[in-house]
């Protein structure tokens, strides 16, 4: 099981802040994860429609979409940041 956490409008569109899911072995990168989640329902498809906008963090550190997710305890998906 992998813990997924969502923030801001990604959280709102998916309809939950976090969940634990089993990922198929074919999901090897962050980009694979986005494409997999989009098959899980309309809420996911809507939240992740524009894949290139979604930021990914693994174990609370920023990663690129083509970075491997092997060994991730926690994967976060969120929009571009707007703090400060």
């Amino acid at each position: 099981m992998t813990k997924l956490v969502y923030f801001a409008w990604v959280r709102e569109r998916i309809g939950k802040g976090e969940e634990e899911i089993d990922l198929p072995a074919s999901v090897k990168t962050g980009g694979d994860l986005l494409r997999h989640l989009k098959t899980l329902g309309d809420d996911y498809a809507h939240a992740l429609e524009h894949e290139n906008v979604i930021r990914i963090a693994i174990n609370q550190e920023h990663v690129e979409h083509d970075d491997p997710i092997a060994g991730a305890r926690e994967i976060a998906l969120f929009p571009p940041m707007t703090g400060g």
């Binding site: 801001a8 409008w9 963090a57 920023h62 929009p79 940041m81 707007t82 400060g84």
Partner: peptide
């Protein structure tokens, strides 16, 4: 620190308007 904080630190702003409407999330 401010320039990096704004683009790399995971914070997000949502607007609430004076007329009671909840606005959208602020765009980067």
């Amino acid at each position: 620190v401010m320039d990096y904080l704004k683009t790399s630190a995971p914070f997000w702003k949502k607007e609430h308007f004076a007329d009671g409407r909840t606005g959208g999330w602020v765009d980067a």
